[in-house]
Design a protein around this nucleic acid. Structure first.
Lengths: 297, 297
DNA sequence: CTGAAAGCGCTAACAT
DNA sequence: ATGTTAGCGCTTTCAG
């Protein structure tokens, strides 16, 4: 009997039986290094919404960069028969992890990591965007620019440091000898405050991460300096923090909507049976000028 | 053939078949109003870890307080045959949601919401902790204290406002006529800055939420005032922001470890077959004095 | 095209 | 104790 009328379908098919017979759990997993990163949180929320419309439940595990958590998560995903996974792990080179992915029995989608495995992926244009940010500052007359980037050995940090050095060299400028030690336990506040106290202090900072940004803003205020008159600032990765600060902070903002659409569509396609070769695509950052960079000319 | 040796057990039982036969999905769901709240994020991470050891996979859905998302999430949880759910929804009185919970086919654990339904729950002692915070300030000589609390109609906001009014009355002090409009879209920065410009400005603020705290700190600095000399501050709910700020911010910190242990143990107990009546327990906040309250005496 | 039957891979109940 | 069998509720397949 086909159901008529539009009463809320009382039919609740049993998910386990369905999964067993159809060999599809209708589960999609995400493994992200960090749930505090607003980009990942937003990506997860958006994917969960989109995939819910298609009848999928989306899981998430945050590894806090810990290898063992990442390994366990992938194992669990495999054992549970997930239909696909989206990963941005904190360890992009670990052989055990790579082996697990090699053997993974469902499509894998990699978000902004350089990993030696056959899988679809999106890569963010860190090199181009950092270059643009440096050029922006150089054009405004800045010569002492300090990068405050993650030191993690994954794609974003590696590429940003390399791109920064290249852009500075191209502009004939010196890369500051001291690199900010941005790790989970370091006191960015103290480091930045110390740097700002020196006579040849940087006139501009490139700051990655909203938590770090908040420490940096705090350090600047604490040193009695002002944004942008005394210190110019570009946030690497946009956030509510950068947007809502007074004054608002110029930021490199990832084209998040494009990322979301691409990940959700491509993963669904793979689940539905796309068998083509692994796809790699790129997502850009846009420099959103909010006036936090001072014109020194 | 019993497996010998200690090769990593290649036996990967099929989760769907197991779930079908045993009538247990080994899935536990969380429904929280908000993933930006560090308390929920930590709770989720901790629960996921603990329950993973017992073979359960923990799902999370963040509703952003939206009723329709909460309804959909509960429906999904029911359809997927989750073994238990932990909820802290943004809507604690909605009849549709309550009906869904009434009919929910697995144990429910409620985190700090007043909901008319038979379920285990933990409640946080907002009343006592706000009273303690107000008394702390009053003892230091403060008379004009401004609360910056959430306006949401759920337990934490409701109780805090009531407790604040009661504590001020008990101290013979006036409750400020203007209440800070703390909603997702309000500009806490502008509101707080305006209040701080008035001649009879508050000498102390009680601030709930790490995002709001960051706006408030920004507003204070922007107004040319200092913590704690010009404005005293107590963070309602601890966070890395409060802890790591310079100066560090005195905070009401929830006894998180107790919360985590209690939720994880109680839920596991229910899944394992505990049939006793619904349990209600309470979790305290501790006032962590970090020196952000000035002694006016 | 519509309807009946087989069977996915486990675990729980039952028989030895 | 240990081994065997039935069947969880779907979807897919095969027959009519």
């Amino acid at each position: 009997m086909p159901r008529r009328g539009s009463w809320p379908a009382p039919k609740r098919p049993n998910a386990a039986a369905r999964a067993l017979r159809s060999r599809s759990s209708r589960l999609i997993g995400c493994l992200f290094s960090d749930l505090e990163n607003p980009l990942y949180t937003r990506l997860f929320n958006a994917l969960q919404d989109k995939w819910a419309e298609e009848g999928f439940v989306t899981l998430i595990t945050a590894s806090s960069e810990k290898l063992d958590r990442e390994v366990r998560a992938i194992r669990t995903f495999a054992e549970r028969g997930l239909d696909a996974i989206v990963i941005a792990p904190g360890n992009q080179d670990d052989p055990e992890l790579l082996k697990l992915l090699e053997d993974f029995p469902a499509p894998i989608f990699i978000v902004d990591r350089d990993m030696e495995t056959e899988a679809d992926r999106v890569l963010f244009d860190h090199a181009e965007s950092i270059q643009e940010a440096v050029q922006h500052l150089v054009h405004l007359g800045h010569r002492r620019i300090l990068p405050v980037f993650s030191q993690l050995a994954t794609r974003p940090g590696l590429l940003r440091h390399a791109a920064f050095d290249a852009a500075m060299a191209a502009a004939g400028l010196e890369v500051p000898e001291k690199v900010m030690p941005v790790t989970p336990n370091s006191s960015v506040f103290a480091e930045v405050k110390a740097v700002l106290a020196s006579p040849d202090r940087p006139t501009a900072l490139l700051v990655q991460g909203s938590v770090v940004l908040s420490s940096v803003l705090n350090a600047i205020a604490n040193a009695g300096l002002r944004v942008p008159e005394d210190v110019s600032l570009i946030a690497v990765g946009d956030s509510p923090m950068a947007e809502e600060h007074v004054p608002p902070i110029t930021a490199l903002r990832l084209e998040r909507e494009i990322l979301i659409d691409r990940v959700s569509a491509q993963v669904l396609g793979r689940i539905r049976g796309d068998r083509g070769p692994a796809q790699t695509s790129h997502i850009r950052y846009r420099l959103v000028d909010r006036g936090s960079c001072f014109d020194l000319r």
